[in-house]
Each structure stands twice: as C-alpha cells, then as structure tokens.
Design a protein around this nucleic acid. Structure first.
Length: 878
RNA sequence: GGGCCCUUAGCUCAGCUGGUUCAGAGCACCUGCCUUACAAGCAGGGGGUCACUGGUUCGAACCCAGUAGGGCCCACCA
C-alpha cells in the first residue's frame, strides 16, 4: 500500500483517540502496581481552552503517558471548578439578556438557572483537551460542586469551626462593587494610577481658624468622623481637643492626635473615615470614633451622602470636588500617583468595606505546610526559586476570608436562630443545626422554620483546596480504597500565579485533613506570552485560537511547539513558527518510517556498514534514554524533548538511515530490516509522551497489533548498563571524517555521486575504524593506507590522522600550505597553553586527577598532530 | 518600601560541583542541491568582549563586591 509522502494528522488523531477511549486505556482502578497520580488543576467550568491550558495540560499528558509506559498505574483525574465569581457573573449576564434580574429571583430559582447554564456550556474545555490528546481518566471527571465534593467542603467547614479555627468577624474587606461580593487579599490587584490629591479646608468649630487636609477621596468626607494630627506636630498643638466642621455637611467632628499620621505627607492633617479605610478603621477603634458608612453595596452614595445620594463614587468625587471649589473649601489639587486595588475578575476598583464575614485562622494551619516544603523536602517545587515565594507567604500568612456574597457555590452551613450576634450554630445539616440551636438558645421549642441559613457561599478556593482528596472522596470516607491507593498524588502542574490561592492551601489542607502531603512535586509552568513578550489576553486579541492551531499543525505539532521553548518557570514566548517546527518533525518521522517500510527484503549478508551503524545507534539510544531520565527527574521537559528531537532527526534519520539504506532499487538484508524496525519501535516508545498520535499510528502500521499491544500501554525501553562510550566516540570521529570530505566536495564543487579515492596516514598507529561507513557516506573507493603524503592531493586532518584525496589539478599549493601553517600555529599555541598549565606546580597539586589526566591527553594529542602537520608541510614545500 | 530572580549568537534558551580542543542547542540567516523517504527536505557555512567594573583563584560565563538594565512577588502611607 502506498503511504502518503506528507503526514496528515487530522484524520489520524481522532481515530486513535477513539481507539484509546474504546479500549479504556486512560482508565485506572487500584491494583497491585504502584500508582502514579495527577489531579488536573480544574479549569473554570466557564472556561475555553487557551494557550496556558494547552501548555499546562500537554505537560501533564507527557508525564502521565511516560508513567503509563513505565508500568505505573497512571491516573490523571480531570474536572472543572465551579468558579463562583466568574460563573455567577456569566449567569447574571445571560439572565439580564433575557430581561431577568438576579434580585427578582429566589436563591433556588437562580441556582436552577446556574445549573442549567453549567450543564449546557460547562465542560466544553474538557472536550477541547481531548483534541490535544490528553489521556485523562474521563470516567473520573469531577466538578467542585458534585454532591460528594460539596459535602466534603461542608464537612471541612464544620470541622474547622468546631476546632475553633473559623470565626465570624466584622472586618474591613475588599468589596467588589460590580460583582457585589468580597474578595480575598489575593484576588485584589494593585495598579498604579495617576490621580489627584485634594487639599480641603475645614473650619475649626467656634473659631475663624481653618485647617487643611489632603485626601485622594474627597467624596468620602461624608463619612469623616475625625481629623487626626501627629501629637508632636508643633503646627497643630493648638488644635488638640477642638472640633472641626466637615464641609458640605456641616457636621462637627473631633480633632484627635495619633502618631500614625505622617507629618511629612500632605499637610500633616488626616481626615479619618473609619468605614472606608483600613487604617482609619484602626484609628477609629483606638479613639472610639463613630463609623459612618456612606456607600450602598454598588458603591453609589447612600443617604449619608445627602444631595449626592444615588450617585456613583467617581461621579460623586467630581461633583464634590466642584462643589467644594465653588464654596471655597478646595485649596488646591496636586497630581498624585497612588496604588488602587482592583478586582482580579471584574477589574472594578475595590472598595474597602466593613462587613460580617467568615474567616479561617491560618497561622497554626500553615506550620506543617511550611515545614513540608522548606525543611523536610516532602514536597519539591520546580523551579526551586518558588520556595522563597512560598515561604514568604506562609510566614506572613493572614486569616483567610472564606465567605463570598454569592449564591453559586457551597452555602455556608451556619444557621441563625436569633437576633444576637452569637445566635447561630454551625452544622452539616439542618437537623443537627436544630438540635444545636435548641441547646445553645435553651429554647427547646425552636423548629427548623426558626432557623435561617447564612446567605453567603464559600470562596471557590475553599473547595478546590480539597481537590486532591475530594476527587477520591477522601474527606467523606477517609479510609476508602481509592484515597488510600492514589493519595498522595505525584505531580502537580500549574502556574505560579496560583501558588497562594491553590498550591499552598492544598498543602495546608492535606496535612490538616489527612496528615499527609497532597503531592510530591509541583512543576510551575511559565506564562504564555506572544512573540513581543506581551501577556496573552482576550482584550489584546493576541491569543491564538487553540483549536485552530490543532487543526493547522496537528495536536502533536502543537504539543511539540509548546514544549520546545518552555523551560520550567520561564515564561514561554509563543510563536506559531514553533508549531510549524513540530509539524515538520512529525513529517520527518513519518518519512523515516516510509523509507524503511518501502524496503524489499532479501536473504543476503548484512553489510559491515549497516552492522556497525546499528551497534552505534543502539548505544546512542541507550545513552539518550539515560539522559531523558535525568531531564525528566528535573522536570526539564523541554530538554527531554530536544534530546528526543535530535536523536530522531539528526542521528536516526540523517546518519543511521543513510548508513543502512540499500543501493537504489536494491533489497535490504533481513537482519538490517529487522533490527532497524526494532530501533524504530524504541524511538516510538520515547516519542510517545510528546507525540502520542503519530507514534501510535506508526506503531500500528509496523504490524498488526492486538489492543493489548497498543503503544500507549506498551513499555518504556530498557536501558543496558554497559558503558559504550568508546563506540560512541569512535562514531563521532567517523562523522568528522565524512563531514570533511563533504566540505571538500562542496569547496571543489565535486558532485556527491562522483566516487573518490582517499588515503589515510598516521605517524605511529594507523588503525582503521568505521571504514565501511565512511566509504559509504562519503562515497569513496576502499580507504588506502599510506606512509607518506600523497602528491597533488587535497588533505585534511582529524586528530593525528591525515587524509588525502588525490584530485588532478584541484590543488592550490599555496592555499594548502597556508591552511596547514595556520593549523600548525594554532595547535602549537594550544600545546603551549596546555604545557604551561602542566608545568604550574599549583595546578598540578590542586587540580583533581581527572583534570590533570585530561590535560596530559591534550598534550600528547597535540604533539602527535603537530608531527603530522610538520611532516605535511615539509612535503608540500617540496 | 521589603524580598526574590534574570542579563550568554539575530531570536528563544542550555551551560549541573569553577577544570576537555577558541562557549553549546533549536530556530533564523548565508551558500549549493528538485540526489528515488522527506524542499515540511539534504549538505556545507558564518555568527558571541558570556551586561559593565573590580576582586578571589593555578584556572571564572560560573564564586564575591559594586554599577547599569529588565522581570516577578509582597506591603494600608492619606
């Protein structure tokens, strides 16, 4: 059957993915083998595949496929994350399109819409991962709001509450006025923004005196409840204990003194707005100030904003500033650069807001997690530099705000039974809650109707921090077979941007709920950027369509393209040209197979050149597999791929196949064909993690295979422990000889098909290696020995060997002399430097023996070469 | 403001404990080839003051100090 000369991935990829699925090769169940487990970083259920996912999941698939070949029970658990803020925002937007407002719906109605949305659109991303070739155990696909996973979250909440680690507090939180929810500190991004610093004059009550404060937020004057000065600031001593009148609203507020104020900044007078600034809140508590919250949840002014009620905070700022100016309260404005917190999800400017929230105490929980990474090396981070980041966060950890003012997520299992601040209980279900509430209130006539569950949902990360356990139901049934078998997982592959959100918290949860790490290694990928180093983003439109890329270059091509330049932790400059390189590589392998497949076999003896070539390649393959192991053990996936790439392209295709190729239209001997197919099969084994489709396809074309014999479940090549470095070095030397002949052909414009004679001369020990191969590749008549230089011949040298190719009229004597003279001068200089080193006592006494031996070898080689060159020169000069 | 990291060829990066024969790779580039596996290819070639300045050492891309430039993380200065 004719095989196409171009590899076309499109039809092949779907075919093999279906085949693997049909035979359940991705599925894993506990057995006697050692497990190798990866849990996917669950993408947002609303997500679509982008380049970051492609990179991340390609790496996971490489690891899982390699582990599978190595005989581990490989289990890659896929799934999605309910992503409360992002998903709720999408559902709200969709309802809005339908003319429905969230506020018109009950919680149940809204959740019904959300589930409908999830079932319709959610998980598209998982189907996209299949196109990439990801060999996840799809039967295990989990969702962070699946019943078991949600119940795990509730159980953990109750458990932590009962341990006294969860508390409810009125705290200044990061409020997202767009999403109408709280954000954790980690979800706030500070951006430098050029703004104005407003100088506003306040009248001192009962006098003509005035004082001037500087603020970036004039609209918050309605919430002012004090003016603060530094107690040692001489300029303002006379104001201590007096009152000031807030412009526009005319309220009197105390003037207090506190060392918190920076005398250098602004005017040295600070307006204090306890409801809208974290520091002001602290000041307020210290000085017993009134707290006036002037905003509605959507950051419009409320009734405290008087005439500005209903106005957005930024509009109010302009209006207030204008009005202050009109009434001569505004002294001046100055340009001022300040950092503004914005929401990671909605980009809205965060409003510090006081509210009741649930918090998890982190300090003691963090201790085992810190120790596991930094002291015990139970968990290793790749690259290691992230350990510093991890340590810094863990050592300065703050309590985690785990409540969100959203419906989509696990509802906080706190039940209120009265109006008092402490009138609540926490329980896994309402029945237990009722019992507890009756006890706590002393009122045995309470019914479930009297209980009101907290409206808020838990932070999404409060469910995903359990992911490596909850996907195996290890929280609800801590002793089940699956969790005992698969946990702790092996590798986690994720981005450094979620080291705090997710990685660190999973470690915390692992030790707290299971007394064991969640994974052994964490591999941080870099960010995918475009060729101009810009972050890929939807708004820039510089992110290529992932599925289109797969269509154009094949999944294998894209995988190779992504991996080629992604050293761990380094950002990846994505360039489509890399996918083209991947596609070209696939085609190269394809044609390499096409060649051997086309050979007719005959019962003829194996040529010497083929025999030695196969021995050499086997040795090189062996060595490469060892290198691959080393790269993989350090998570240098890119280097592992490059080693495979060079082995297959440069050595297998360009050297081995050329050496064993039969003459045109002639048959190959049986031994060679059998051996090269075995070598090809080995190639496919190491290629498979990177290019699963192509490798499986060729594997199956080599011969008919039963499903159990599929490449995906075959085995990793075994490595011989025999040292074959002499064999490899010998071949490298032969390659040099061949290259030199090719260079001469090119310089002298001698066609490859023209057969040449060649002589070899060595001053002492003319041993000939690899002659058959050299003769074949350089297209030579049998190599001849000579004791003295050949007249009128072109020459070149490799080590102490000198080669002569007699070509009538081709030689330019002066040029030859110049060439040899130059080579001689260089070699002499080199020898001098080596000898200088060797005659240096301090070098000889300090350097390790191996280094000295090496220098001695350099010395003797150089001496031999100089001898050859000098002899040659004498001859050339006649 | 605090902490961490980086600077090696046109580009993207290796370079491990300081020690091979002018410092490596891939891509790009230049030259010659439509040679019967592959032009998505073959063969050959050019290209680097290892950011800069000093120091330690028999020996420095690598260790130390400083300088310049770039990046990341953390932090409540109105």
């Amino acid at each position: 059957m004719e095989t196409a000369s171009k590899y076309s991935p499109q039809q092949i990829e779907n075919q093999w993915y279906d085949y693997w699925m049909k035979h359940k090769f991705f599925a894993s169940t506990p057995d006697e083998r050692t497990p190798y487990t990866i849990v996917i970083p669950p993408p947002n259920v609303t997500g679509v595949l982008h380049m970051g996912h492609m990179l991340n999941n390609t790496i996971q698939d490489v690891l899982i496929r390699k582990a599978r070949l190595q005989g581990f029970n490989a289990c890659w658990v896929p799934g999605t994350d309910h992503a409360s803020i992002a998903t709720e925002a999408k559902v709200v937007a969709r309802l809005k399109e339908q003319g429905i407002s969230k506020s018109d719906l009950s919680r149940e109605e809204f959740l019904a819409h959300a589930w409908e949305w999830k079932n319709e659109y959610g998980g598209v991303i998982l189907d996209q991962l299949k196109k990439l070739g990801c060999s996840c155990d799809w039967d295990r696909t989990a969702f962070t709001m699946d019943p078991n996973l949600s119940n795990s979250v509730i159980k953990v909440f109750v458990d932590l509450f009962n341990k006294g680690l969860i508390y409810r507090g009125n705290r200044m939180v990061n409020w997202d006025p767009e999403a109408l929810t709280t954000l954790s500190d980690e979800e706030v991004i500070y951006e430098e923004k050029q703004g104005l610093l407003y100088y506003i004059s306040y009248q001192v009550a009962g006098s003509d005196q005035r004082l001037t404060i500087a603020t970036t937020r004039p609209e918050t004057i309605f919430g002012d409840t004090a003016i603060c000065v530094h107690p040692e600031d001489k300029r303002f001593t006379h104001l201590h204990g007096k009152k000031a009148i807030v412009p526009l609203c005319g309220r009197e507020i105390p003037i207090i003194a506190d060392a918190y104020v920076d005398m250098e900044f602004g005017t040295g007078c600070l307006k204090v707005t306890p409801a809208h600034d974290l520091n002001d809140k602290a000041l307020g508590e210290k000085h017993n100030l009134e707290v006036i919250d002037i905003f509605n949840p959507n950051a419009t002014l409320n009734s405290f904003g008087m005439g500005y009620e209903g106005m957005d905070r930024f509009d109010a700022r302009k209006k207030v500033s204008k009005d202050l100016e009109a009434q001569n309260f505004l002294v001046k404005t100055e340009q001022h650069l300040n950092k503004v917190g914005t929401s990671e999800r909605t980009k809205a400017v965060i409003e510090p807001r006081l509210s009741d929230q649930w918090f998890l105490k982190m300090e003691t929980l963090a201790q085992p997690a810190l120790k596991a990474v930094l002291e015990d090396e139970e968990i290793k981070l790749f690259p290691k530099k992230f350990e510093n980041t991890y340590r810094h966060w863990m050592e300065n950890i703050r309590d985690w705000n785990i409540s969100r003012q959203l419906w989509w997520g696990q509802q906080i299992p706190a039940y209120y039974f009265g109006a008092g601040r402490e009138d609540f209980v926490v329980a896994e279900n309402i029945e237990t809650a009722l019992t507890l509430a009756r006890e706590k209130s002393g009122n045995s006539s309470l019914t479930s109707q009297d209980l009101r569950q907290d409206e808020d949902a838990l932070d999404t990360w409060f469910s995903s921090w359990l992911w490596p356990m909850s996907v195996f139901n290890g929280i609800l049934e801590p002793d089940n077979e699956e969790i005992n078998y698969y946990y702790p997982t092996n590798d986690l592959v994720t981005g450094p941007d979620i080291i705090f959100f997710w990685v660190a918290r999973m470690v915390v949860a692992g030790y707290e709920f299971r007394g064991e790490k969640p994974f052994s290694n964490v591999y941080f990928t870099g960010l995918v950027r475009d060729a101009q180093r810009r972050k890929m983003s939807k708004s820039l439109g510089n992110s290529p369509d992932a599925l289109k890329l797969i269509e154009d270059y094949g999944a294998d091509g894209v995988r190779v393209g992504l991996l080629l330049s992604s050293a761990a932790g380094n950002d990846l400059m994505f360039d489509e040209a890399l996918c083209q390189q991947g596609k070209n590589f696939a085609n190269k392998i394809w044609n390499g197979f096409r060649l051997i497949q086309s050979w007719e076999v005959a019962d003829i003896p194996q040529p010497e050149s083929a025999k030695t070539a196969i021995e050499w390649y086997s040795a090189l393959f062996n060595k490469t597999v060892l290198e691959l192991e080393d790269h993989f053990s350090k998570y240098r996936i890119s280097d592992a791929l490059m080693a495979t790439y060079k082995l297959l392209w440069e050595n297998y295709s360009s050297w081995l196949l050329e050496l064993i190729k039969p003459q045109y239209q002639q048959a190959v001997d049986r031994t060679t064909k059998t051996q090269v197919i075995a070598l090809m099969e080995n190639n496919l084994r190491i290629l498979h993690p990177f290019m699963p489709f192509l490798s499986e396809d060729i594997w199956q074309q080599i011969k008919e295979r039963s499903p159990e014999e599929a490449l995906i479940v075959n085995h990793w090549p075994e490595v011989s422990p025999v040292d074959q470095s002499d064999l490899l070095a010998g071949f490298e030397w032969a390659k040099q000889v061949v290259s030199e002949v090719r260079t001469i052909r090119k310089e002298k414009q001698i066609a490859q098909k023209e057969v040449l004679d060649m002589f070899v001369m060595h001053p002492s020990n003319p041993l000939l290696y690899w002659t058959a191969g050299i003769e074949k590749l350089a297209n030579l008549t049998p190599l001849q020995l000579t004791q003295s230089p050949i007249e009128g011949a072109l020459s070149f040298r490799v080590d102490a060997y000198e080669y002569f190719i007699p070509i009538a009229g081709a030689i330019d004597l002066d040029a030859e002399i110049a060439k040899v003279t130059e080579e001689l001068a260089y070699t002499k200089g080199f020898l001098t430097s080596v000898e200088k080193k060797l005659s240096n006592d301090r070098f000889v006494s300090n350097a390790p023996e191996a280094v000295i031996a090496l220098e001695k070898k350099k010395q003797s080689d150089a001496i031999a070469k100089i001898e050859t060159l000098e002899q040659s020169l004498v001859y050339l000069r006649g």
